[in-house]
Computed example of a mutant assay.
Amino acid sequence: MKTNIGITEKNRDAVAVELAKLLADEFVLYTKTRNAHWNVTGDNFHANHIFFEAQYKQLDEVIDSVAERMRKIGHFAPATVKTYLELTHLTEYSERTNDGLGYMADLLRDHESIIEFLRGNIVPFAEKYKDYGTSDFITGLMETHEEMAWMIRSYFR
């Protein structure tokens, strides 16, 4: 059945393209955070292991919400690793150490990249594409990533 939510098909298509990129970024960040959880080493292993677990669980919820937002505006969400790697703005792997700070520096860069991507789409989604719901949605996601980045950044002196 056709999606009739007061946003033109052309505008919904444009928003969906950007949400697909966001979904890819979120999936790659989730995977990298899982990697940190599994492979972190060092003096603060246990605390870092628990910290990364909390973060990947939060990202799992974010991924689901982005995919569901795509469905709400009438599009299917991409769902293959190959597609995510084609769409993502992030780097799948970065050279770093396996200690907590090595992972955190890498993950912090990714959160900040997502924050910039989200911030750059808030106004266009609302004003250019007349999708105020998705604009509001990504504003909330931006705030989530800002908090997650703050938590990571707090490990650095």
Rank of each mutant, 00 (worst) to 15 (best):
T144M: 08
K82D: 14
P78N: 07
L101I: 13
F137P: 00
D136Y: 12
R109F: 11
K130W: 07
H145Y: 12
E86G: 02
I114V: 10
G133E: 11
G133V: 10
I138A: 03
F137K: 03
G102N: 05
R96F: 07
L107V: 11
L107T: 09
V40M: 04
K72M: 13
G120P: 04
E95D: 15
G120R: 07
D131E: 08
V66E: 01
D110G: 02
M70E: 04
H89C: 09
E86H: 08
D110L: 02
H111P: 03
D136P: 06
T134W: 02
I122E: 10
I50C: 04
F51T: 06
I114S: 05
L59T: 02
V123N: 15
E116A: 15
G42S: 05
T134G: 08
F117G: 01
N44K: 11
D43H: 15
M104H: 04
E112H: 12
E61P: 07
G74W: 00
I138Q: 01
R96M: 10
Q58V: 07
L108M: 02
A67C: 02
N44A: 12
E143P: 01
V81S: 11
T83N: 05
L85T: 07
V81M: 15
Q58M: 09
A67T: 00
Y103N: 11
H46R: 14
K82M: 08
V40G: 05
F125T: 09
I115W: 03
N48Q: 14
T80G: 06
D136C: 13
M104G: 05
L101H: 13
N39T: 09
P124Y: 05
D43K: 15
I115A: 06
Y84G: 00
L101N: 10
L101C: 07
H111E: 09
A54C: 12
E68M: 06
G74T: 01
